[in-house]
């Protein structure tokens, strides 16, 4: 950053401008003296491999792309929803390495080397629904359905985390998923139905 132009160190630019897409380099100790230009031109797309629902997806993305937008606009997986884009509603909840996170506040580039599971990856390949999906149907745990993928991903995680042992616990640990239709009592009932089934399964 010698010339004050954000993001365009001259040396870095020369070193990488020939590439049309770049992968994200991992900085290591060897780079201490002179950091390796990993992706020196921020305008160049990053070439990423995201493992989504057990399948590797090769994507070429603007570095600013969130995991949510990568899923929806680049991987064709529109189940995860955008409701606020700022971590305030939970509609974009997915699992990363089995833990629930917000895909709207995660850069796609940070999701490399992690297992991503979305709502599309929850049912079995033969179409059998996950017990939580069936429980949401049984208890009418949605109305418009827009927050539902996030609710279900969160609910599955809530059970796996061991936070579904009482009604107050379920309510507290599901409070990161807003439902404007306000299906909350039915969501709690659905989780109570699915939790023991998940343990058996």
């Amino acid at each position: 950053m010698t010339d004050g132009t954000p993001g365009f160190s001259r040396r870095n630019f020369l070193a990488t401008s020939a590439a049309s897409t770049m992968s994200v380099a991992l900085l290591d100790r060897g780079a201490r003296a002179a950091p390796t230009p990993a992706q020196a031109n921020p305008r160049e797309p990053l070439k990423l491999t995201l493992k989504i629902n057990g399948r590797d997806r090769e994507l070429s993305l603007d570095p600013r792309t969130t995991l949510l937008d990568a899923l929806r606009e680049h991987a064709g997986l529109t189940g995860s929803k955008k409701g606020c884009d700022h971590g305030q509603c939970g509609a974009c909840t997915v699992m990363m390495d089995g833990r629930r996170i917000l895909s709207c506040l995660t850069f796609a580039a940070s999701a490399q080397d992690h297992d991503i599971t979305t709502i599309e990856g929850l049912a079995q390949t033969d179409g059998t629904l996950h017990p939580m999906q069936q429980a949401f149907i049984d208890h009418d745990a949605f109305q418009c359905g827009y927050c539902t993928p996030g609710q279900i991903m969160s609910a599955v995680a809530c059970v796996k985390e061991g936070h579904a042992n009482s009604d107050p616990d379920i309510r507290e640990y599901m409070s990161g998923n807003l439902c404007r239709c306000a299906a909350y009592p039915n969501i709690v009932d659905a989780i109570k139905q699915a939790a023991p089934q998940m343990k058996e399964g």
Binding site: L77, E120, L122, I137, G145, P149, I152
Partner: peptide, 12 residues
């Protein structure tokens, strides 16, 4: 149950 229930719980 809602006719579209399955679509809504699978993200479809």
């Amino acid at each position: 149950p809602r006719l579209e229930a399955r679509l809504k719980v699978t993200g479809e």
